[in-house]
Amino acid sequence: MATKTREPEPIDAYLASVADPAAKKTLGALRMQLRKLLPGATETISYRMPTFKVDGNAVAGFAFFKTHCGYYPFSGGVVPVLKAELDGYTTSKSGITFLPDEPLPAKLVKKLVQVRLAEIATRGQQAKGKRVVGKTAATGFQVGVVRTLPMTASALWEWVTKQPEHWLGTGAALKLKPGMPYEVPKRRGAPGVRGEIRVVKPGDRLRMTWQPDGWKKPATLQLTLVPKARGVSLGVHMENLPDAKAREAMRERWSKVLTNLAKD
């Protein structure tokens, strides 16, 4: 009986067609990293480029164009959120351009994937009104809440930095310097919280750890400001949450915080 020849996977065929050795190596390595970040994702070709899909949603894609490579999150909202990390790269709303012999850093690819997954989860909540439990091998349980507010980015940053008691909790105080610890006192109905400031980008982004009493490990909390035509979008993203229950609790917490802010 004749042995059937296995048809090459779509992305295998695409990479085999890339003549530039550096590009083939770089995109092959990028594919391997995406496999680790998105276990169980479907690998296919979309818009003539290798694409990773999760539950039918395109999360990441890449391609080679004669002299350069491109990375595409299939969203116009991901690149603006990470504009600080993408400083120095040629970008558009839909993607990032880089040279074949200068691959994107692994940490940057991880963040691009994280932001896209959080965006998909948030839009799913808004569109369907259902709970969406997001978990990946790279970030554990995560949640994202986004709201556009009728105010300027500078006014919102002032609120975030000068009035932390409204979003961190009563008694909270922040010193906006990487490495500085913070603590929120325990009060009736709410546990104490402690953490450390990690990244401060004035008017743009604040990243910190978040560990309430009873959590064995800290989660990561990031607040991102993105100017819009009619105000500014505030995105709250948490990752490495301990379980689905904590994820739902944080989704409800931050949804309430943003709703209250919109009323002020």
Results as ranks from 00 to 15, higher is better:
residue 19 A to D: 15
residue 64 F to I: 05
residue 61 G to H: 07
residue 15 L to D: 13
residue 65 F to C: 01
residue 57 N to P: 04
residue 66 K to T: 07
residue 16 A to Q: 13
residue 62 F to K: 01
residue 52 F to Q: 01
residue 40 G to S: 04
residue 11 I to P: 13
residue 65 F to Y: 07
residue 49 M to L: 14
residue 56 G to A: 03
residue 46 S to Q: 13
residue 47 Y to F: 14
residue 51 T to I: 12
residue 26 T to Q: 07
residue 18 V to M: 13
residue 16 A to G: 11
residue 38 L to Y: 02
residue 48 R to Y: 06
residue 50 P to H: 06
residue 65 F to E: 11
residue 61 G to V: 04
residue 62 F to C: 00
residue 66 K to S: 11
residue 61 G to D: 06
residue 16 A to T: 13
residue 58 A to W: 00
residue 58 A to D: 11
residue 21 P to H: 08
residue 11 I to A: 14
residue 55 D to G: 06
residue 34 L to M: 04
residue 30 L to E: 05
residue 39 P to M: 02
residue 42 T to P: 00
residue 50 P to M: 01
residue 17 S to A: 15
residue 40 G to Q: 04
residue 47 Y to L: 14
residue 12 D to S: 14
residue 35 R to S: 02
residue 49 M to T: 08
residue 63 A to C: 11
residue 50 P to S: 03
residue 43 E to G: 08
residue 64 F to H: 10
residue 22 A to P: 02
residue 51 T to N: 06
residue 13 A to R: 15
residue 13 A to F: 09
residue 17 S to R: 08
residue 62 F to L: 06
residue 12 D to Y: 09
residue 22 A to W: 05
residue 36 K to G: 00
residue 25 K to Y: 03
residue 41 A to H: 10
residue 15 L to C: 14
residue 33 Q to F: 12
residue 25 K to R: 06
residue 51 T to G: 08
residue 60 A to F: 07
residue 59 V to W: 01
residue 29 A to P: 03
residue 16 A to H: 03
residue 18 V to K: 14
residue 18 V to E: 11
residue 32 M to L: 09
residue 33 Q to H: 14
residue 33 Q to E: 10
residue 11 I to D: 14
residue 16 A to I: 11
residue 66 K to W: 00
residue 59 V to L: 04
residue 43 E to N: 11
residue 57 N to K: 12
residue 56 G to N: 05
residue 27 L to Q: 11
residue 36 K to W: 03
residue 65 F to S: 14
residue 45 I to V: 13
residue 18 V to F: 13
residue 59 V to Q: 04
residue 12 D to M: 08
residue 65 F to V: 02
residue 23 A to P: 03
residue 39 P to L: 06
residue 66 K to Y: 00
residue 15 L to E: 12
residue 58 A to H: 05
residue 40 G to F: 04
residue 45 I to K: 11
residue 29 A to K: 15
residue 59 V to S: 05
residue 11 I to V: 15
residue 54 V to I: 14
residue 12 D to G: 09
residue 22 A to K: 02
residue 32 M to P: 00
residue 58 A to V: 01
residue 63 A to G: 12
residue 14 Y to L: 10
residue 46 S to M: 12
